[in-house]
Amino acid sequence: MLFLIILLIIVCVALGLFVLVQNPKGGGLATGGAGSNMFGVQRTGDVLEKGTWVLLTLIVVITLSITTIAKSGGSSTGGASKIQEHLDKTPTPSPIGNRTAPAAAPVATDTTKK
């Protein structure tokens, strides 16, 4: 699972770079400079767009894989199960805490003369 998390971070950084490099008007970093068409803006834009979709798909697949592995309890280390056992042993506190019920207020008697 650690491998998938590291892979997800790498793919996210790559996606960020792909998005930052492209510009839909052709004036981004993909251009060859001041008006020159050295790299071929149209083809570079197509490659960057396809790469963005591929990286986005990879992020979705890796994220769903991590979620599935985590829910099924497929942890490769025994440390997580020890922590879970310790959490299961600790008593859960009462939702209202350790407060006692408040004392009943004394009934007020009417001391005025009639």
Rank of each mutant, 00 (worst) to 15 (best):
K89E: 06
N37F: 11
P106A: 08
V11E: 01
L87T: 03
V19C: 06
L7W: 10
N98A: 09
S36L: 14
T109D: 10
L4K: 03
L56W: 06
G40H: 08
G51H: 07
G26N: 11
K82G: 11
P24R: 11
D110G: 05
T57F: 06
T52V: 06
T68C: 12
V41R: 04
S36E: 12
V61W: 01
A34G: 05
P102K: 15
D110T: 09
L87K: 02
A14S: 13
T68A: 15
D88G: 04
C12T: 13
T92C: 09
K50C: 01
A30G: 15
T57S: 04
I5R: 09
S72Q: 14
R43I: 13
V41S: 02
T67I: 15
E85N: 01
A34K: 11
V47D: 03
K50Y: 07
H86T: 13
G79R: 09
K25H: 12
P95G: 01
G40W: 02
G28V: 09
T100K: 15
A101Y: 06
L87N: 06
A104C: 07
A80V: 15
T52M: 03
I6P: 01
A101Q: 02
N98E: 07
T111A: 10
A30K: 09
T44D: 03
C12K: 00
T52W: 01
C12E: 01
V19I: 12
V11F: 06
A105N: 03
P24H: 02
T68E: 06
H86Y: 08
K113N: 09
R43C: 04
D88E: 08
G78N: 11
A105L: 14
A30L: 15
M38R: 09
K50Q: 03
K25F: 14
L20R: 07
L48V: 05
I69P: 00
L8H: 05
S65Q: 09
I83G: 04
N37I: 05
A80T: 07
T92H: 04
V21M: 12
L48A: 04
N98V: 11
I62P: 02
V19K: 07
A14E: 01
A30N: 12
L64S: 11
V41N: 03
L64A: 13
G32E: 13
L2V: 12
V21C: 02
A105H: 04
S75F: 15
G40E: 12
S76E: 13
K25R: 15
G51C: 08
T63I: 04
L17Y: 10
L8C: 00
A103V: 10
L8G: 00
F18L: 14
N98K: 14
G28T: 11
I69M: 08
P91N: 07
R99C: 01
